[in-house]
């Protein structure tokens, strides 16, 4: 696999928008050509080389190309947006929309990611080793079709409305989440290994949510179905005892499933 290394120079206060940082765009270009790729600085188009040092070797085939961003890009948005193949490794924090509309390939963020990571994702893998903001794997504003496929793994915590309008794929949050996880979810799977504050599965019509930690408050529109042991989801078995709920019956014909670990969650059972 060929590697292109982008070393961030000083990140500006007015953020950069760099949906052009992805193997699909870099592939088949010389280093000089890559330096001249256009990104946005606020409302002004600038060359990539104004804000990044570019070294390494490109490849003709995006699937054979890995872009390494060697540092913090916490003022850069939309890295890897719409990416189809190859790999991006970000060795620091990243701003909003990392991997939005991603269709294939793999992005790893070693630091934290801003909101809307993996927005309307279709395929591929997005892994965030730090925390993620709100709206991981969400829909575009006003759209009712969120994430369709692919996998998002967040090792730290995530914020509100994770998997908003989710239609497929898998989101795993190893830390805690705030409120409204799986809001308006239609399909797919969300696993929260830590705690959730409230409104898990709000207005969900379908799909599955599993919470292994504590759910502080639960919604009254669900139906309690009893305790299930060693649950089967997405072809795998998750060991342990879980309370099972169906809903959210605020929605007509809702068939969503929420599993909440029995341990520590007696307060949400009617």
């Amino acid at each position: 696999m060929s590697e292109i290394i982008l070393t961030p120079l000083d990140q500006p206060e007015v953020p950069l928008e760099a949906s052009n940082i992805k193997p699909d765009v870099f592939a088949g270009k010389t280093i000089e050509e890559i330096k001249n790729i256009e990104i946005l600085h606020g409302n002004t188009p600038v060359k990539l080389s104004e804000f990044f040092e570019v070294t390494g070797e490109s490849s003709e085939n995006p699937a054979e190309l890995k872009i390494i961003i060697d540092g913090n890009v916490d003022r850069t948005k939309r890295i890897g947006e719409g990416m189809n193949a190859g790999e991006i490794l970000i060795k620091g924090d990243v701003n909003m929309y990392v991997g939005a509309e991603m269709k294939g390939g793999r992005i790893t963020v070693e630091g934290n990611a801003g909101p809307w990571a993996g927005q309307t994702m279709i395929g591929g893998e997005l892994e965030i080793l730090g925390d993620a903001g709100d709206y991981v794997g969400s829909a575009y504003r006003g759209d009712w079709r969120g994430m369709q496929g692919g996998t998002i793994i967040v090792h730290g915590n995530a914020g509100n409305e994770i998997g908003e309008y989710m239609n497929g794929g898998k989101i795993i949050i190893k830390g805690d989440v705030n409120i409204m996880t799986g809001i308006h979810m239609n399909n797919g799977l969300i696993i929260v290994e830590g705690d959730a504050i409230a409104r898990v599965g709000a207005e969900m019509a379908g799909g599955t949510i599993v919470v292994k930690g504590i759910v502080h408050e639960f919604l009254p529109g669900f139906e309690y179905l009893g305790v299930e042991k060693d649950i089967e989801v997405d072809g795998q078995t998750i060991p342990g005892a879980f309370y099972k709920f169906r809903g959210d019956h605020a929605i007509k014909g809702a068939k969503g499933t929420v599993y909440v670990a029995v341990r520590g969650n007696g307060h949400i059972v009617p």
Partner: peptide
């Protein structure tokens, strides 16, 4: 407020409200 409306909607659609108090 969200919890209250959730309960109202579920009841309106003919479901039982999960808790005695919301």
């Amino acid at each position: 407020d969200y919890e209250l409306i959730d309960a109202m909607r579920a009841y309106l659609l003919g479901h039982e409200i999960l808790y005695d108090e919301v």
